[in-house]
Computed example of a mutant assay.
Amino acid sequence: MRREHYLLVNGYSTNYWGWGGEDDDMYQRVVKKQLIVERPPASIARYKMLKHTHQKLNPARMKVLRTAQRRIDSDGVNNVKYKLLNTAVYHLYTHFLIDVGEQSTQ
């Protein structure tokens, strides 16, 4: 995803804690902003999920997902609060380690 597209959809929602729903929310943002999702055939590009430990399933994920389209412009890059802990510059990318704090009870 290009930087300008990521900013257009306001990045990922800040309302998801735990596992589940954030990828579907992002898809709704992309569609709402009339961007095109391209899925090239396996002969051209392949995708592999990074290995990670599974978090606890978010029981509220479907409730949050139902409000995705109306939160696009108010929930994401433009309202995220974080603390930068470390920056590591590599040849192909820059890795930022951040602390987003604890889940809000609001």
Rank of each mutant, 00 (worst) to 15 (best):
L7P: 01
L7V: 06
L8C: 13
L8W: 00
V9N: 00
G11R: 07
G11H: 01
S13I: 05
S13C: 08
S13R: 07
S13N: 07
N15W: 10
Y16S: 02
W17L: 01
W17A: 04
W19F: 02
W19C: 04
W19P: 00
G21A: 06
E22T: 03
E22W: 09
E22D: 08
D23K: 09
D24Q: 09
D25A: 09
D25H: 12
D25G: 10
D25I: 08
M26W: 08
M26C: 15
M26N: 07
M26I: 07
Q28H: 11
Q28N: 13
R29N: 05
R29T: 04
V30A: 14
V30G: 07
V30E: 09
K32L: 14
L35P: 05
L35K: 06
I36D: 12
E38N: 13
E38Q: 10
E38T: 11
R39T: 02
P41W: 00
A42N: 11
A42S: 15
A42Q: 14
S43P: 05
I44G: 00
I44C: 07
A45V: 13
Y47C: 10
K48P: 00
M49G: 05
T53W: 12
T53V: 14
Q55V: 10
K56W: 14
L57D: 07
L57A: 12
L57M: 05
N58A: 10
A60Q: 13
